[in-house]
Amino acid sequence: MNLDFSPKSLGELDLYFEKSGEKGNEESIDFVKKLGAYLTQVVTKKTGGVWSFPEDEDIPSIRIGGVFLTPLARVLKVLNEGEKLGQWYRVVTDTIPRLQARRPD
């Protein structure tokens, strides 16, 4: 598997989870951390998102413009419920910026 921090590599991970059929079995906090870190790196590389981890939050987020996103929570969705990393990436990098662009300042 070519994990080169590209959006395409997220699709390869999705395909891996789809083929292996081991979504729930792979869940462990260390694996969630690793996959969450990888997802964060791919997304921030594209969007320039910055970390957000205020005292009243349990887990770190990334802030992209005015939107706060939690890659770690998304990873749990992927592992437990079969959601797709690639689909989330497209929402983050395409849909959200387009919606934000429509918002009046």
């Binding site: 994990l3 921090f5 869940e27 906090i29 969630v32 951390k33 690793k34 996959l35 969450g36 870190a37 990888y38 964060t40 790196q41 970390w51 981890f53 349990d58 887990i59 770190p60 770690l72 929570a73 749990l76």
Partner: peptide, 25 residues
């Protein structure tokens, strides 16, 4: 499981995020 991780661990996760991502690679 995320909320049960100590805050310090998440701070370390942020600081070493790239290295942890490379571990997956």
């Amino acid at each position: 499981i995320l909320a049960r991780v100590p805050r310090k661990e998440w701070q370390d996760w942020i600081e070493n995020n790239q290295t942890i991502a490379l571990a997956l690679v």
